[in-house]
Design a protein around this nucleic acid. Structure first.
Lengths: 240, 240
DNA sequence: CGAAGTTGACACATTTTGTTACAAAGTTAG
DNA sequence: CTAACTTTGTAACAAAATGTGTCAACTTCG
């Protein structure tokens, strides 16, 4: 897996905070993407992969604290709060919610970078047992995906080896069944890189996966093509 | 241990901090040894015994916080941080990581000695600690790894000798099952050295281990390759 | 010192992956 | 309905990463 730069999601309704911060993060060799609301952030999280969330506390609609709670219930992505209030209660509540740190606006961008870096190093060093883990075995169609052994098991339990790319792609699909995933999303989720113009890497990976997965690769039943859209995992995954 | 005096490991990249501190500790009837990086410290910890670690927070390569977490995962040796920043967050994070104390640079060496002494007295008063280390016998797949005799036992208890490198590598894997370990991590954990460009030492060690371990080394089931990632120990270790 | 065993460096084989090119399938304008 | 265009499938190739044999340097033990 390409060890790419950490991808940071900046959630703030104020464009005059969000956009300069994204540019600053990108100048400091992070990947950064913005969302102007919790709802927009949820949507991005559904299809793309992030390593870190920078979150404004006060936003129209769902506020940052609520959204942070949701993030904590659904994973362990690190969260850093941006807060306008120096109010002590806000800080404590933020940390109790599971935030990893907070910065009071107006902030020094260099300090923000330093704190993000510190948290990412800390998280990277965490023992794996604490990390949000993919279920070890998932069944779908006539297969079982074993994510420890990184292979497919057929009905009789015979293992079919998967390459790293095939395993990564299939894992992404199994975790997001019945969602149309664009090529750029798949590329981001599997190798963490941006698509080049005329990038056919995903098409090839799909084809190679179908050859192992599908009974009749020319008429795929599990990974379907959405013309002009991308691909969908059409089977029903069951966690074992 | 010939001497009963506590043995202190000083980890700091700055020689003009490290060396005077070591001399001062030795004058105060401690044994003291220096390391200029976390990697060097790991190597020393593997072969020598220490009672205390004095750790700089900011170092090139692996930083002190990350290294402290590693120490906490692998034992209960007391840690005191040296920090240049008076920043409150740094202090809290350091203590949360499991540090026993911290001292802000520039420090008064007498104060440092006093704090080390206090912590050692406190630790000594604790009930004899269970050494969080490799269990003497671990079973996985069709093998038992005997860490005392440093060899593999098959189902019938027949021993297969392991070389030092093979034993080190297998121990690292058994302690971290189901985690993809990069070549650089494996090199650090087994020999404590940095990888050279085009370093194939780990590949060789893996191959030699597979020949002893795997029923069909060409289709390994225990140590799997993750293309572009490293290797995973895919078996389930059971402590005996 | 010499013999046996261990380890890393190197060379070359093999596998995996991305890129390119072109064919096949789907869509749209007229 | 057909031609032009867009999008996807797939083979063939190239590039990158890994597997493995050989050999020399080094260790260990007597």
């Amino acid at each position: 897996m390409a060890e790419n730069n950490p991808h940071i999601l900046v959630v703030d309704d104020a464009r005059d905070v969000r956009d300069p911060l994204i540019r600053y993060l990108q100048k400091n060799s992070f990947r950064a993407t913005g969302a102007e609301s919790a709802a927009a952030a949820r949507k991005l999280l559904r299809t793309r992969s992030f390593d870190f969330v920078v979150l404004d506390v006060i936003m129209p609609g769902e506020d940052g604290l609520t959204f942070c709670r949701y993030l904590r219930e659904n994973g362990e992505i690190p969260v850093l709060f941006l807060t306008g209030k120096t109010d002590e209660v806000d800080r404590i509540v933020g940390i109790e919610l599971g935030a990893d740190d907070y910065v009071v606006k107006p902030f020094n961008p260099r300090e923000l970078i330093a704190r993000i870096g510190a948290i990412l190093r800390r998280v990277k060093a965490l023992p794996p047992r604490l990390k949000a883990s993919v279920p070890p075995r998932v069944q779908f169609d006539r297969w079982v995906l074993d994510s420890v052994r990184r292979e497919l098991l057929d009905e009789r339990g015979v293992g079919i080896p998967l390459s790293a790319g095939e395993f990564a792609l299939l894992s992404v699909f199994v975790e997001r069944p019945k969602v149309v995933l664009k090529r750029e999303d798949l590329l981001d989720l599997t190798s963490g890189r941006e698509a080049l113009p005329f990038d056919r890497a995903i098409d090839n990976a799909i084809m190679r996966l179908r050859r192992k997965l599908e009974a009749h690769p020319r008429f795929p039943q599990i990974i379907k093509t959405v013309w002009g859209g991308g691909y969908v995992f059409a089977a029903e995954p069951v966690i074992l």
